[in-house]
Design a protein around this nucleic acid. Structure first.
Lengths: 301, 301
DNA sequence: GGTATTCATTCCAAAATGGAATGAAGAGAC
DNA sequence: GTCTCTTCATTCCATTTTGGAATGAATACC
């Protein structure tokens, strides 16, 4: 019979509903839709051949016989969680989380906010690893990553954080009094390129209906901070994710010569391998990141 | 985390392999293929992010960290089985199994063999319900059924027992010296019909390449035993499942006027609803039935 | 009477699971 | 040393399970 025991998913759905006396509340707790939980319970009743709840109007009343079963399951699922967590965390440095982040995003956006995380989760030791190349969980000693891209990566789990808005920026001195009326006028100046995003300018011009070979020409920098430094030094116009140049724009070191923020298909993602799905620290960090992004977006036009 | 706990199936595969130190032996116990168990274990290792076994040549050695986990799981799965079984059997008369069987099959084939079952499984009380109409688990108080048909029934589980071999039989006095050379010669006599199998004769003649309206004409009987009685009384020729007329053939009360046993598409099945999948008594009975059929077939030409 | 809320149902798609066949590699017999 | 047997791993394919989104039914609340 062991093979045909109900699945942990079904049992968890029943137990949470039993505890809350509510399918909707159970769904919230389990991070599932209410319809999925409802179906899981009915499927379990069919498998067991017995009713678990009486349906009275919009309320679920546990059948008398199911009450002890619900209590037993609560205890057993709790123990199963405990022994599984204990096994997973064995040999793994408790509380250490190695996060791979693009260096400029780290220094310009994440690190200024990290005090909030550290204060709230002092038991988690973060190990920030600056990465320009894409994450590689199989061959690198990293647990999770924040990365910018289209999210089309195999064998990993993603949580979207926020969209990528880019904006052209340059030093005021670069223009030297010249007026920028159209996007095409930008081509009179050097376009600062990103090694990691070689098609960024090209795609930006394409969005505006302009096709030009000049879009991929110009000095290239691997570090975004170097690209920002180049722009600030008047070397050319850089196309940057707006959240990493806010300080320069606010201080006037950089200006926006043309247009505003452009939303791109790429976005920032919190990325982790399947084995981190159950890691409480990893999921805690991911959740905090999402909250920070939501808060950031709410205060940015 | 409760929602993303490993499935009971994966945990059972790991625990059985851990206990047996063998994927093949675990597969046998769980009634799965060895490849499925192997994959389940690897999937579990990926989900947990930790190795469960070291692979040394053809042997699996549990990792040190996994030993306690394996023991814990053995205990927890055992408890889960116990509380689930207790819940299922609550309110259900322990050991009672209601079996729906066609009456003639019951009297002619099953009941003579039941002593063996009762001796071996004295804790199971059988309740034989004679049914001519097809089983209806939703609206009838029956647990399992033995039924003859094509097996094309929705929402139930089937175990094939044996094929259906039919044979034409009649009283010797019916022929009154007339010689039967071809199947067509049978049409000179009344054909005894079954209410439950109205097309039996028609299909039988079709197998022999004969199409005739006469195939569905003749006196009709709902009980197979009545059909047998009618045939023995010389009322006509009956087409019967051979296993229910063996006694009459052996004693000479019935003879086979033409041809031999014909295998039909229909077969005998052990049928049960999904909720009986985990019922130990139901599965015990089904297994015993299969053994009886195998034994019967082995001693019948 | 209208709105909100909860559970159930339907449609659709993705993920998980399992069987069958086959391959790789070692153990054992001769 | 060679051949056969055995066990675990992998690939291909199909089925089952699971879950989200949308919608319906029915009651509770205002």
């Amino acid at each position: 019979m062991r093979r045909t025991l109900p699945s942990t998913s079904s049992l968890a759905c029943f137990e949470a509903t039993f505890r809350h006396r509510s399918v909707t509340r159970a769904a919230e707790e389990l991070n599932m839709t209410q319809s999925a939980v409802s179906r899981r319970i009915q499927s379990l009743e069919e498998l067991l051949g017995k009713s678990l709840f009486r349906r009275e109007n919009r309320q679920l009343i546990p059948d008398i016989a199911a009450i002890q079963y619900g209590k037993d399951l609560g205890r057993l699922l709790g123990e199963l969680e405990a022994v599984t967590t204990r096994f997973i965390s064995q040999g793994h440095e408790l509380g250490l989380l190695t996060v791979a982040v693009p260096p400029t995003l780290a220094s310009r956006w994440l690190i200024p906010r990290l005090n909030d995380f550290i204060t709230k989760h002092s038991h988690i030791d973060l190990n920030l690893v600056s990465k320009i190349k894409r994450f590689d969980f199989d061959n690198e000693d990293i647990d999770v990553a924040v990365y910018l891209g289209d999210g089309n990566w195999p064998d990993v789990h993603l949580q979207p954080l926020m969209s990528d808005f880019v904006v052209p920026v340059c030093a005021p001195s670069l223009l030297n009094g010249q007026e920028i009326k159209t996007a095409k006028d930008l081509l009179k100046f050097p376009l600062i390129q990103h090694t990691t995003r070689p098609l960024l300018w090209k795609n930006w011009f394409t969005e505006l209906g302009i096709e030009t070979a000049k879009a991929t020409s110009g000095p290239k920098f691997e570090f975004h901070s170097h690209a920002i430094g180049a722009a600030t030094s008047g070397i050319g116009i850089a196309l940057m994710s707006d959240l990493v140049v806010q300080r320069e724009i606010n201080s006037g070191d950089l200006i926006i010569p043309f247009g505003g923020r452009t939303k791109f298909e790429d976005g920032y993602f919190f990325v982790y391998p399947p084995k981190m799905k159950n890691d409480v620290n990893a999921q805690t960090f991911g959740f905090w990141l999402q909250q920070q992004c939501a808060s950031f977006l709410a205060t940015t036009p």
